[in-house]
Amino acid sequence: MTVDAIITADVLDVASKPTVRPRRRQARTWRLALSLLLPSLLCLAAFTYLPVVRVVIDALYATPHGGSGTRFVGLENFARVLADSAFRTAAWNNLLYAVGTIFPSVTLALAFALALWRSTRFNAVVRTVLFFPSLVPLVAAASLFFFIFLPGVGLLDYYLGKLGLEGFNWIGDSDVALWSIVGLTVWKNAGYYMIFYIAGLQNVPRDQIEAATVDGANAVQRLWYVILPALWPTTAFVVTIALIQVLTAVDHVVVLTKGGPSNATNLLLFYIFQEAHENFDAGKAAAATALSVAALLAVSLGCLRAMDSGARHEA
């Protein structure tokens, strides 16, 4: 599918009157469109395009820490980033983190929504409890989880101990730390995504479900053949926001681990952050930013396109 899939081609120009000649009509539409987009475009220009241009330029120059002036180096910064094992670790961690967070939190969100979409008093309470984590700032949540993850005396180990189990050094063991961060993120986000699924479920056509039931479809079949396809646009939406979140929200890494131990929880944004602000390597940070943004752009465009085609099928 191409761009045409995203911009639905069958749009009519409703605002215009048939008496106006096409040429002038076109010019008028163009002016109207531009003035509608202008407020957004100005803001984007200042806070998105300008920084991007700066990043791309920075990525092509070396600004040696303490050296005099900058010097054009072409793609050297990109080569240095790709050669940096910490960058490769961060990219790999981010992939694990993305898959490890998005899949369980979206699945749980769907399961919660299916279990709770009827509005009873009990369900209302449970929904509220599940949604609460998204009301806590990530910085604060991370500080609370600091205690939860404390080896020996923390909440997790305390109750695991009561069950006769031994916990881990949750954020201090390089094999476990990333998964602890994943756990925190799933806890924080699953209830948030659930809200969108509950809303989406209100739109699943009841008659189709009933028809399927009459035809002898069991619960799993109903879910698979009727409910899930109807929820497809919601899923695309949820996956898109989840994707943005896993790449752009790293407060918990900053608070809990600073990417450690031994880079085991280093994620791309935090890596960029370190290169820019701890290591004074603007060129490398810029190159890493450019690479991650390009990757992210490709993935999320895919998601949005899926979302769009879903919407078109429905319409």
Partner: peptide, 19 residues
């Protein structure tokens, strides 16, 4: 000494808790 990394807040809390 416990394996892995413990943050300073964890160290002081363990000290207070007699761990």
């Amino acid at each position: 000494m416990p394996a892995g990394v413990v943050e300073a807040g964890g160290v002081s809390t363990s000290f207070f808790a007699g761990k």
